[in-house]
């Protein structure tokens, strides 16, 4: 691919992350409503919400500092950046080389770090509680994340996402016990990291159960819009990461393949939405101190994946 084509695919990747994320979230919410026997507000509702928030005035807490005001931008920037390095429509993304899986995780880390600080900035009890719990969950998820990355890199001898994608694509038939273990681990991690049900409930404002919502409780107007949007992108990015790692077939290697790749991605995302909703409906939100067990399971699965790679493959 020449430089122009590369830039074009990159721009498409970024646009996809930013614009498709609310759509994906809308799809998940719609599915959820259906599964609970409610009427859904329509798949475009997240866009409407965002637009509404962007046009509103901001109510800023009296003692909020610049950290509080900068956080939405930083969070949005880092997550969009994360989205731009995951090769989900083309494996020849130019930005893909600037961050491998570990750097990607670190990008999420920046977002988390600032969100947690913002939660503490105003000085309410909910914010602090959210930050504290968020950091705890993140720290428990991290070993599992690393194990997953490690096992995946065992196959391809690389942590670079494009290389992994190309490697897995090169396999005609891909079914190994280690990958199966790691895939389940990844799903659990994804639920925890994106604040989905058994760990956190994204729709609640019930004071004792909220984690992510606790931290952004004081946000309003465009700040809140950015935070919400970033949250949606995070779910989307994790889903695309799953696609890139476990089901990269169809990801294009040149510009010509991109439309087809987009179609495939849409299909895959639809499927992921179904899986997520199935899990969320089937499980209840856990008590906070059950979360270590949940994430421990994820770690165990990832480790089993690694072990089975050495032992069976």
């Amino acid at each position: 691919m020449n430089i122009l084509e590369q830039l074009l695919t990159e721009a498409m990747q970024i646009a996809l992350t930013a614009l498709a994320a609310p759509l994906f979230v809308g799809w998940v919410r719609m599915l959820k409503c259906w599964s609970q026997g409610r009427r859904a507000p329509g798949i475009l509702q997240p866009y409407r919400n965002l637009l509404k928030l962007f046009s509103k005035d901001i109510l800023l807490a009296e003692n909020a500092s610049w950290v509080f005001r900068a956080t939405p931008y930083v969070v949005f920037g880092t997550i969009l950046m994360a989205g731009s390095v995951i090769p989900v429509i083309s494996s020849e993304l130019p930005l893909s080389a600037s961050a491998d899986i570990i750097a990607l995780v670190a990008l999420f880390g920046i977002a988390r770090f600032f969100t947690a600080l913002a939660g503490m900035d105003v000085g309410t009890s909910f914010g602090g509680m959210g930050s504290s719990r968020e950091m705890m969950i993140a720290s428990l998820a991290e070993p599992a994340v690393l194990m997953t990355a490690f096992t995946v890199s065992l196959f391809s001898h690389s942590t670079s996402l494009s290389v992994i994608v190309k490697y897995v694509q090169g396999l005609s038939f891909f079914l190994s016990p280690s990958m199966a273990f790691v895939f389940f681990a990844f799903i659990l991690i994804m639920l925890a990291e994106t604040g989905r049900v058994p760990v956190d409930n994204p729709v609640t404002h019930l004071e004792l159960t909220m984690i992510h919502e606790g931290m952004i409780l004081e946000y309003s107007g465009r700040h809140l819009a950015l935070m919400e949007w970033a949250g949606m992108m995070k779910l989307f990015v994790f889903s695309s990461l799953g696609i890139a790692l476990f089901s990269p077939w169809g990801i294009a290697s040149d510009v010509a393949g991109v439309p087809f790749a987009l179609l495939l991605v849409a299909l895959k995302l639809t499927a992921i939405g179904v899986i997520v909703v199935l899990i969320e409906t089937g499980m209840a939100k856990m008590r906070i101190f059950r979360v270590p067990e949940f994430l421990g399971t994820a770690f165990l699965l990832a480790t089993l994946g690694m072990l089975s790679h050495f032992m069976l493959e």
Partner: peptide, 8 residues
């Protein structure tokens, strides 16, 4: 958009 300083 206007920014209003309010108590938390």
């Amino acid at each position: 958009n206007a920014i209003h300083r309010v108590p938390p």
